[in-house]
Design a binder for these strands. Sequence first.
DNA 1: ATATTTCTGTGCTGATTGACACATAAATAG
DNA 2: CTATTTATGTGTCAATCAGCACAGAAATAT
Lengths: 205, 205
Amino acid sequence: MAERGRPRNFDRAQALDRALMAFWQNGFAATSMNDLVEAMGINSPSIYAAFGSKEALFAEAVQHYHTAYADDLPAALKSAPDAAGGIEAMLEAAVELFTRANRPHGCFVVNSVASNAPNGIEIEQTLKELRQGRSKQIAERLTEDVRGGRLRDDTPVQELSDLYAAILQGLAQGARDGLAKERLLTIPRHSRALISPWMADKNSR
Amino acid sequence: MAERGRPRNFDRAQALDRALMAFWQNGFAATSMNDLVEAMGINSPSIYAAFGSKEALFAEAVQHYHTAYADDLPAALKSAPDAAGGIEAMLEAAVELFTRANRPHGCFVVNSVASNAPNGIEIEQTLKELRQGRSKQIAERLTEDVRGGRLRDDTPVQELSDLYAAILQGLAQGARDGLAKERLLTIPRHSRALISPWMADKNSR
DNA sequence: ATATTTCTGTGCTGATTGACACATAAATAG
DNA sequence: CTATTTATGTGTCAATCAGCACAGAAATAT
């Protein structure tokens, strides 16, 4: 089935990525349609025809970020043989993601917390779930190690997961505030100490 | 020397506190002058006469928050006999501050990250310094313990301070996202494990 | 070639924004 | 009392916001 009508004059995926960069840097509210027109290189009627509304464009940008940028984190979490290594790798991947050159610093999902839309209930809910989803992923990784006998049976999985998730969010804030990558990278290293009291081969609590 | 002219019809300090609540909840950009008029209970010309501009009002709200609300944190940091206890107390005080009922959740200074003003360079700089100031305060507390012999000489003070500061920011985000206080309070407890490898009476690293 | 469909660029719209002009009210100074 | 000073409330300003109407342009279908 061939396409009918005048073909689109721009690359939709590229335009979406540029919109993401604009939102990532300035947040939803502070990014005006004018800013988007400049960043995406197309006029506003084309934006509305292709994406629906500013809010729908933002929602697509969130999905795009999640699949194209933040995908390294769960991958790193599963990369190492044990949870301690996986979490450290995930935190390192996060620092890498949050401090890449020629790209806004910090985590897009975390940066978008305070930049709520006027009708922001829907997308706000999605963002909140994305943030809290990290804690669940970490909890699953820890549970694996408990089941595998590498962590003690009485390991407080949810509490440790919340703590690691908090560190992750702190890394995002620090990166956005301009902390140097080398300085941020010391954090994953020291975070290892949180889990060692719960290693199965230790008897000290 | 008596006052001249018609006296003010509202309590300036109370109006400032109400403005802080509005900014705390919705951020700078998303809080309109109309919102401020409602929250403060006075009309906009009176706001401008008393505070200058929306930006100046926000700057005063930042100072007010810092002195009237966030003052518990450095106090708690110095309360305990050792750094480990002081930091744990500070994190607990932070959770308390971030999850009080009848008040916006989260840290006002952290919430204000993404809500930058159009001419936000000045106040943004102040906010950034407030955030990074916590790390320095923690570092001072740790250094005290190193000097006092309670922590090893090779304790990585700055790295640990950055890590604790990251946890602090993570707590703020979690509180804003609606995590329950009891759940957040487990984080200060487990954070103790970060410092124990550097206690002087241990020989394991 | 003609009709149909879809995209593009110009330019507008009603609503909302931060900020203030103006006249009036309420206090003190003399 | 009158003059002066400062605060209040009504109403309004230009600027900006998100969104879209409209006409022309560029493709396919028949």
